[in-house]
């Protein structure tokens, strides 16, 4: 019993720690990686709480959360997964809101290939079109909507190469293996300008909006840092960061 008597106060201290310096484990959709890193740093500075970020696809998070993953907040890439989690009793009802609306861009690593009319898409003069898998990724679904709206879906489908998420789709286009690709504006824009290559920002009326919803998960109920983070995402400061990364809100 002697060792335990020494350990007991230590254990008590360790168990007490989280209550003082509140922490929240956040599941972040991969496309929101860059802005969320900035927001988490500001959040820590402004509130003293700590946000531990994990990045993966929303589908993977869904499976993990269903099987007991220790996340308190989900920042989803869509608006259906949070609703599904809430319906299954894994999300706190009434906590859901849209934290960002994604913008789609047709992008090429080659300067001058993509113009404002997306004429390259109509002419069909490209080897491959990189697109996120429409079954899995909201950006892929939106890209399919755009092609359908333009009446180009059947022809373009033969040249699809599909990334399992938007990050991989960008990789296919960035390495030049696909001439053009539908990616998230947040991936190719910095300070309101394209980082490189050429692009066409797709008008929002050509596809259903890419609403990205946040959800307080059941495990986060009563966690001070979790609710503070969700409130923080609604502040003007956070929204300015989100907009600067190519999202609307």
């Amino acid at each position: 019993m002697q060792p335990f008597r020494l350990l007991a106060p230590l254990l008590a201290l360790l168990l007490a720690l989280p209550a003082q310096a509140a922490e929240v484990n956040v599941a972040v959709a991969a496309n929101f990686t860059a802005p969320m890193k900035v927001i988490a740093a500001e959040f820590a500075k402004d509130t003293g709480h700590k946000a531990n970020l994990s990045f993966a696809s929303t589908g993977k998070f869904f499976a993990q959360i269903k099987n007991g993953a220790p996340f308190q907040v989900l920042l989803s890439a869509d608006d259906t997964t949070p609703a599904k989690l809430e319906a299954e009793g894994l999300g706190v009802p009434g906590s859901r809101f849209t934290y960002a609306i994604g913008t789609l861009v047709l992008w090429s690593a080659k300067p001058g290939l993509v113009d404002d009319n997306a004429s390259v898409l109509r002419s069909g003069r490209y080897n491959k079109l990189a697109i996120a898998n429409p079954r899995l990724a909201p950006y892929g679904k939106a890209a399919e909507d755009v092609l359908a709206s333009l009446g180009l879906l059947a022809g373009a489908r033969k040249k699809f190469v599909m990334g399992e998420n938007i990050a991989q789709t960008y990789q296919f286009a960035r390495t030049g293996n696909a001439d053009i690709g539908f990616v998230a504006l947040s991936q190719v824009m910095k300070d309101g300008k394209l980082i490189s290559g050429s692009g066409w920002i797709v008008p929002a009326n050509l596809h259903t909006p890419i609403r990205q919803d946040a959800q307080l998960l059941s495990l986060g109920k009563g966690n001070a840092a979790a609710s503070a983070l969700l409130d923080y995402l609604k502040t003007d400061k956070a929204r300015a960061i989100i907009r600067a990364h190519g999202y609307e809100i």
Binding site: K60, A63, N133
Partner: peptide, 22 residues
């Protein structure tokens, strides 16, 4: 691979797609 049916969509990728699509 680029996940193209009949060309590069092998079993492991197909399973992964099923899981990701829930």
């Amino acid at each position: 691979g680029g996940n193209i049916a009949g060309e590069t969509r092998v079993v492991s990728v197909q399973i992964y797609d099923h899981v990701e699509a829930m």
